[in-house]
Write a protein that binds this DNA or RNA. Structure first.
Lengths: 405, 405
DNA sequence: GTTAATTTGTTGCAGCACACAACATATAGA
DNA sequence: TCTATATGTTGTGTGCTGCAACAAATTAAC
């Protein structure tokens, strides 16, 4: 009857009744917990693993032993001592356990080999004259796999993940639409599974970028974030809600690029008017600069140089609209963090305080209070790392059960 | 190495590494699974529970026995036979295990007593001349509790949930802002815990309505939905993503009422222009009718009557804008279902095909293909039932551990 | 009306997982 | 060299679920 301290509700429990679990699933969950910690942090001492999992020393010992036997982790002697007491051996995720990561784009197909821990072992790239078809992409993968052969031989590949610049049905891996590649309803993942023999998974590139940033980048430790990436082809987005990527029913969620931002704006290629990606747009930024700067550095310089100029006017216009859009997303998702990549990151760095002020002005104050707006941390291999995460997911969820026998 | 069948990725696994679990948590999870199934379905045979949980007959027997001993469930003889074989006893969630549900509103404070299974045992209402303050609300609760005394005596109350027409910080139960009540930063849940001795929880009314519809109403069995409720005070919203309510970092997420829908629209009380709730608006609908109809039925009739009239023009304008907004939400959440309540439900029923066509035209086709737009199923006690869910959550998550000793 | 088939509850046992405690081990510091 | 501290290791205990055999209660068939 007495409620002494105020109880906190469980953060975000599922509403639907779950199925039961047994002992075996406990083991699976704990193995998953250990390997996932190692995958995210690279290496940890067994003592640290014990603290993070909350399990008993002896249990962690047994779990690490089982993972070691499955060649998913290995131990090394504790490096330099970290105080009194018996030193705890370092446990490493086995980097040789790897995933292939594919990124078909308008002018090239890129294939990477990413090891546990998110390390890129190797990367090969095949430029194409025109955007590749799905079939061509699959053929190119076979060719690129040969080039990767030396690296591949040293690895145990668990699957292949694809970052697609388009809309992907997440459960089947079918690309519903990739406008810049001119793909329609391409069963990419099944085709790749067929061609390579590896389990294949496909996802939208921006959502995979968000995942990479969440696991290894600027979103590390954050459980609610909105990721926006600006490129020449538009604005891609990904959302993390309560620590989980927002996929929606079929995998088409978090498409924020076509959010209405200005009813009087230009017509968008999607048919509507005043979409975010039509108003906050790299081409229009470059047009204001009179030419197309090659690098992000060039653009950054051009923005600084042009105080009072047409450039500055355009930068301000886009920043204000971006701020307006972000304020809308804050009302929708209430994130702790908004991550900006691509030219949106450049825009942010040009006038960070203007963007922050704009967002703060339009947001509900308590939601804006706990909000950070930051630039992404990961570089050009973001998409490959994110794509690899897709392929790693089964292994991380069920380390022993998903092992290749 | 061989990937015969195409593997499906785990739907929406958390990205962060989890903590470990032990035997005790397995038991807790399975007890939770059983009581949650019963809470959602009312009563189930033990055989049906066995099927739904996937656990062994003997295990389910033990779980039900433990819940029975804790007086959370009780068994009755199987009613009419359901085929050959030994009849399986019906297990019922104990309705005497109940939660208080509070709904402070501009003109009244309502307090209900809701039993497991979502049954409303009793309801008392205290009209107020003006919107009550938080302190007044708490005082009124004590008074209303006396009125509920006869019902209360027969129940075991596990806590009190509050549906607040405003923004609530979900983890602390502090009402950040309730404009129509003129509340600012009111620590409502702690105040109620202090005053009543019950664990108290508070949430936004629309989100709790969404939860009620998901558990007991039109959203039953759906894991991704958008709920929109139109009332005189605006448009409230709630989102279910991957079976979980979208709360965001602090609990302020899913505020869809102020989504931009028309840059040239009227100024909203929030300071911006052309928000959804300013354009799709009950007052403007009633203004077009020349008077304020009392009931939803009156309004429905007025809409039908006015073919070609100013009413129809306004209904069409609002429907088209609502469709535009829903199309935006589909791009953001990719739900299976959009649920419309309040006057939005009336609008839908006035011209369902117009709204559907509008949404389909503006949506990305594959996302629209699997989409349903429906009216809510639950009636006036929606908010009380949703508020009670908040208070039940701890019990449902940890049935034995959260028992009152 | 008796018997067979079917489904389900019940019970005892086996397998497995984790916690715990005691002990062994390896470091730092006195 | 000895003590304090932290950690790995091992054996034991408790708890949970699955399984198989049996008992019970119903329907269907002869």
């Amino acid at each position: 009857m007495a409620g002494k301290r105020h109880p906190r509700p469980p953060a975000s429990a599922p509403l639907r009744a779950d199925v039961g679990t047994s002992n075996a699933q406990t083991r699976r969950h704990n193995l998953s917990s250990v390997i996932t910690h190692l995958h995210h942090s690279g290496s940890l001492t067994r003592a640290e693993l014990t603290r993070r999992t909350g399990l008993n020393r002896s249990t962690v010992g047994a779990l690490v032993g089982e993972l070691e036997q499955a060649r998913l982790v290995h131990e090394t002697a504790a490096p330099e001592s970290a105080g009194v007491g018996r030193p705890s051996p370092l446990v490493h995720a086995n980097r040789q356990v790897a995933a292939l990561a594919l990124n078909p784009d308008v002018d090239a197909v890129e294939l990477g080999l990413v090891g546990l821990g998110g390390v890129l072992h190797a990367k090969v790239r095949h430029p194409t004259a025109t955007a590749p078809t799905a079939a061509e992409t699959v053929r190119l993968v076979s060719k690129l796999l040969d080039e990767l052969e030396p690296s591949l031989r040293q690895c145990n590949v668990v699957g292949i993940g694809v970052a697609v610049p388009g809309l992907v049905q997440s459960d089947t891996g079918v690309v519903a639409l990739a406008p810049h590649l001119d793909w329609h309803d391409e069963p990419l993942a099944p085709m790749l599974t067929e061609a390579t023999g590896y389990p294949a998974f496909a996802g939208n590139d921006a959502k995979l970028g968000m995942i990479a940033e969440t696991v290894f980048g600027a979103g590390s430790g954050v459980s609610d974030l909105v990721y926006l990436n600006g490129s020449a082809s538009g604005i891609g987005a990904g959302v993390l809600a309560a620590g989980r990527p927002l996929w929606g029913a079929r995998g088409y969620a978090a498409e924020l690029g076509h959010t209405l931002i200005n009813s009087d704006g230009r017509r968008c290629h999607c048919g509507r008017r005043g979409c975010l990606e039509t108003e906050v747009n790299l081409h229009r930024l470059q047009a204001a600069m009179g030419r197309a700067p090659l690098s992000a550095e060039d653009m950054q310089r051009a923005m600084r140089a042009g105080a009072g100029s047409a450039i500055k006017v355009e930068v301000r216009r886009q920043l204000d609209l971006l701020g307006q859009a972000i304020a809308g997303f804050v009302a929708i998702f209430n994130p702790e963090l908004v991550l900006l990549g691509g030219f949106l990151g450049t825009l942010l760095d040009a006038m960070p305080s203007r963007l922050e002020a704009c967002v703060a002005r339009l947001c509900f104050a308590p939601a804006a209070a706990g909000l950070q707006i930051r630039r992404v941390a990961l570089g050009e291999n973001l998409l490959l790392i994110g794509a690899a995460e897709l392929a790693f997911q089964a292994l991380l969820t069920d380390p022993i059960g998903s092992i290749d026998r």
